[in-house]
């Protein structure tokens, strides 16, 4: 269990998130992908904090704040999705494309 392992793990998480964001049609799933990306960053912060950083608490604080932010993000995004759903009765990324050109 060294730094490289965690970095690879986070890279995997980040890529998984990206793939979800780019390929899933349902916007709620896309949101889950974004959460994965944020968690990848959190893993990175924790790993670096554990193996590299002189100050052992910085990373933990950052991760706590990221969790909080992610929750806020979900709240706002879901609220907007609700508006979208009420207006169109669908949350499919490929079908909402009236704005273009």
């Amino acid at each position: 269990m060294n730094l490289t392992f965690f970095l690879l793990l986070s890279l995997l998480l980040f890529s998984a998130g990206l793939i979800a964001v780019m390929s899933r049609r349902n916007l709620v799933t896309v949101l889950v992908g974004i959460e994965l990306m944020l968690n990848a960053a959190s893993v990175n912060f924790m790993a670096f904090n554990f193996f590299v950083a002189p100050d052992p608490v910085v990373g933990q604080i950052i991760v706590l704040l990221i969790i909080g932010l992610a929750a806020a993000e979900v709240a706002v995004f879901l609220a907007i999705l609700m508006v979208l759903y009420r207006a169109r009765h669908e949350v499919d990324a490929e079908d909402i494309r009236e704005l273009r050109g």
Partner: peptide, 22 residues
């Protein structure tokens, strides 16, 4: 229109900021 604009804006914004965080 408003919700479509907002969803697209926020989606791209969230991803950009996740990249920033990474």
């Amino acid at each position: 229109g408003g919700s479509e604009g907002a969803v697209k804006y926020m989606l791209q914004g969230m991803i950009a900021s996740a990249v920033t965080l990474y």
